[in-house]
Design a protein around this nucleic acid. Structure first.
Lengths: 157, 157
DNA sequence: CCCATAAAGTTAACGTGTTAAATAAATGCG
DNA sequence: CGCATTTATTTAACACGTTAACTTTATGGG
C-alpha cells in the first residue's frame, strides 16, 4: 500500500544515514544528560565551555566552528554563559569586529567538577561498545565528514 | 594554560563521539537541504512524511519513535502538515487516547516528486565515500545505538 | 582621503529540542 | 460500579537550529 510496486523508491528509514546518525547521537546523549543536568548547563553550553577549556581564548567564529554551533545560537549562548559568570567576552583591540571569549575561574571549576563523571560515562561506553570499535567509528565519522565537506551541491561551480 | 599538567582530563573535542556524530550529520544534511528547500518542507517534516509513506497509518507514539522526533515536537509538526494538506489525522475508535496519522494523496505526490533528487544525493554520497563503507558505517551506528539503548544510567535499577 | 565592498557579529523570525506539567481516556482493584 | 493509577497525547516554557537581514568595522581601489 505504501510502495508503488516491487521497487523501493527510498531506502528504509532504518537505513538512512541522517536518521541513524541522529539515533546514535541520541543514544550517547542519553548517557550524558544526567551529568549535564547535575551541573546545570545545556549540552551546547557544555560544548562551548569544553572548547574554551581546550583552546583558551577564542574569537566567536572559531569557537562556533569548533563547538559545531551556528553563529546566532552562539551569540545567545555566550550571553547566557557570561551572565552566569562562566566566561568573559571582550573586544579584540586589533580588529574591533571580533569578540574574544575565554573561560573564567568559575567556568574552569565547573568543568573540573564534572571531569570524573564525564570520564565514567565514556569509560562505560567504551566498555560496552569496545574501545577499539569506538575509535574506529570515530575515524569513519571523521572521514565521512571530510569527504562530504570538500565539495557540495552549493560548491559545484 | 588549559591543562592542569600533562594529563588530559577530557578527550579532545575533535575525538568526542557526540560532536563527531553531530559534524557527520551536518555534512550529510548539507547535501540534502537544497532538495528540502525546493519542496518547502523542513528536515523533520520530511522524516515524518517518509515514515508515513513507508509504514502507512501510524499512531503518534510509533511515528515519533520511527522518525526520531520527540512527542511535543511531533504534535507541532503534525499540526503544520495537516494544515498544508500533506497528512490526515484521526482518533483511534478502539482507543480514543490515540491519534492516527496518514499520508494524503498530496503528501504522497510531494514525496514522489522528490524521489529522484533524493536518490541522486545518496548516490553521490555512496560514490564519494564508498557504498560498502557507507553500509558498514550504518551497521556500526545501528550497533552502537542498540548497545547503548539496552540499559542506561536511568535504567540501572 | 572617500566610498564601495567584504567580513564579523548580532538581531529577527520561525521551527524544533527538551523537560515538566496538564488533559483525557483506558485499566485495574476493592 | 467507583476511584486511584497508568497510558497517550498535548500544552507550556525556555533553549537551540536555521536562514535572512542588519550593524559595525576593515579593506581596497579610485
Amino acid at each position: 500500500m505504501s510502495e508503488d510496486a516491487d521497487r523501493q523508491t527510498f531506502s528504509p528509514t532504518r537505513k538512512s544515514l541522517p536518521i541513524m546518525l541522529l539515533r546514535a547521537r541520541e543514544a550517547v546523549m542519553f548517557r550524558i544528560r544526567p551529568m549535564l543536568r547535575q551541573i546545570g548547563v545545556t549540552e551546547q553550553q557544555w560544548r562551548v565551555l569544553r572548547v574554551l577549556e581546550e583552546s583558551g581564548e577564542l574569537d566567536v567564529s572559531t569557537l562556533a566552528e569548533r563547538a559545531a554551533i551556528l553563529g546566532p545560537s552562539l551569540t545567545r549562548i555566550l550571553k547566557t554563559l557570561r551572565e552566569v559568570g562562566y566566561i568573559d567576552v571582550r573586544r579584540d583591540r586589533d580588529d574591533r569586529r571580533r569578540s574574544l571569549a575565554s573561560l573564567t575561574p568559575a567556568g574552569a571549576t565547573l568543568i573540573a567538577s564534572a571531569a570524573d563523571d564525564s570520564a565514567a560515562v565514556f569509560a562505560a561506553i567504551h566498555a560496552e561498545f569496545g574501545t577499539e570499535r569506538t575509535q574506529a567509528l570515530l575515524r569513519e565519522l571523521d572521514a565521512l565528514t571530510e569527504v562530504l565537506g570538500e565539495s557540495g551541491p552549493d560548491t559545484a561551480d
